[in-house]
Amino acid sequence: MNLFRLVADLMHLVSIFILLLKMQKTRSVAGRCSRISFKTQALYATVFLTRYTDLFANFQSLYNTTMKVFFIASSLYIVFLMKFKFKATNDPRLDTFKAQYVVGGAAALALIVNYAFTVQEVLWTFSIYLEAVAILPQLFMLTKTGEAEVITTHYLFALGTYRGLYLVNWIYRYWTEYYVDWIVWIAGAVQTGLYCDFFYIYFTKVLKGAKFELP
């Protein structure tokens, strides 16, 4: 464990708390002028469920197990809130990204490019590929509405920072322990790349007090 990875994981936690806070605060997932994509949240729940199949079989540390449990539980809770509690405020007409294609693509790629052709490894690889593109429905929704509530942009910023710090962590681990993981690196680079446009607008507008609006 290094500092980059620790802060990255903490930013991931922060992003989830921001999301829960937003949902509780507005008592809806719709909010005033920005929305949370149910598809993105459902994809994240799928990511955690397929990645941590070793939860009971492989104990690494209390930290590792606690985080895994938290990510699975919180993602399922968010999906539950959106599907049942705040269903009326969730507008599927804006959540139009074709998620089935990225699920299919990630599954196909996981069957072809993996470290070992076992059920657990293919599921793990699938979760890595799926996480890389899981934010797309949310970003797509943002593009469609053209603007976002500040709290939604903070959520995306925390998520993007978490991914960015993982990139730094891999460079650090490569030099200090000769750690190599091509599948995670390439998927992670793609995932972080998706946040570039968002980061640009976040830094140039939101941090200067302006509203998040697409040009």
Partner: peptide
């Protein structure tokens, strides 16, 4: 070998 693969990151 599959048993050697350990994913220590989250």
């Amino acid at each position: 070998v599959a048993e050697d693969i350990e994913h220590d990151e989250l």
